[in-house]
Design a protein around this nucleic acid. Structure first.
Lengths: 203, 203
DNA sequence: GTCTATAGAAGGATAGAC
DNA sequence: GTCTATCCTTCTATAGAC
């Protein structure tokens, strides 16, 4: 019994968003969702078909929230490689993991309904990276030999892998190092200076 | 009731190694371990303190098995950058995920006993990559401006992130692309040719 | 060492009153 | 829409015979 205002449906979604980030899907039970939201059994099954549908709804909202922040980083007014650099060096809570991709290793990811919001979120980031890299290349700021499409996927993989390494070691510095190496490599394929790598990273 | 020969202890460990890779830790129950191994309740709790200790034993063996294969890839007789390339382009079952790091997002990773075998395994790979990159740099095959230490972490992050992206999309090609971009970037910081990127990847 | 039997708690969902 | 009460299954572990 924690929340007062708003409908129980909203409270359930908010609680589930927290729990999915904190514990993942398998490790979260309907009881956990009810306890944290302050809703009773009936509310969950009135508004949702079950645990999976509630989780899917929460995931979709999480993706929207994250995407809003990320879209702001890819501000078209900035030089394209600055956008890429800003995304890479963005502050992250490495030990918490990626809010969406954290769930990629759950058994439930084999269900299309579960993975759809996660995959769409990741694809959108790849698109933003790809577009920025392609724009840089068209403007002569990125070497012609580089394929913006696959490098975009590589850069996102560095971030997602950085989370994995940081969590496996319970050491945020693995994320910092993974990003640092990516920025160093990016610098070697750029024909213009990239902002200082000394920006704050992770925690 | 699936296995005949060997002790029940061995059968339990083998079954657990399979299950941890297939489903992860949370999604695997002691009952699953018993069913697949053919052991009874008593055998599990006779040989191990419980689910966690059995999982830890299985993880340790998994790390040893994987490490044997990886050590062979880093054959000191090969040129150092060829080793790195061979590791990156190694065939992988992208949808199954990394046998060890797949568990980095389980809630149980907060327990040191659980994450220790995983962290040690990943650190050993970073060391092998680091040593090869440093050797290449000392031999003039890698540009002086590159830091072999952080790039080693970045390359492993690409692999682990590649698994995450492939699983989230249920599409092995994300691993292929992530690796492809990493090889392309590595090529730009090398001063000698790196073997063809057309090697077979993933499944 | 291995087995079956059992147990208390938690998981996931339903029934039905208000 | 929301609540409490209930239900069956699964989870994790223990007991005790062989």
């Amino acid at each position: 019994m924690r929340r007062a205002g708003g409908s129980k449906r909203t409270a359930l979604i908010e609680a589930t968003k927290e729990l999915l980030w904190e514990r993942g899907y398998e490790a979260t039970s309907p009881r956990d969702m009810l306890d944290r939201s302050g809703a009773g059994q009936g509310s969950l099954y009135h508004h949702f078909a079950g645990k999976l549908e509630l989780a899917r709804t929460a995931l979709t909202e999480m993706a929207e929230e994250e995407m809003a922040a990320i879209a702001a980083i890819f501000d078209p007014a900035k030089p394209p490689l600055d956008r890429v650099h800003a995304y890479l060096c963005r502050e992250r809570d490495a030990l918490r993991g990626c809010r969406l991709a954290r769930l990629a290793n759950e058994a439930a990811v084999e269900l299309p309904a579960f993975r759809q919001p996660i995959a769409a979120f990741l694809d959108r980031i790849i698109e933003l990276l790809h577009a920025s890299l392609a724009e840089a290349q068209a403007g002569g700021q990125l070497r012609p030999g580089i394929d913006p499409s696959i490098v975009a996927t590589t850069l996102l993989a560095v971030i997602e892998g950085g989370y994995v390494l940081a969590r496996a070691h319970w050491e945020p510095r693995y994320m910092v190092e993974a990003v640092g190496g990516a920025v160093a490599l990016l610098r070697t394929v750029a024909t213009v200076p990239i902002p200082s790598a000394a920006e704050r990273l992770g925690q």
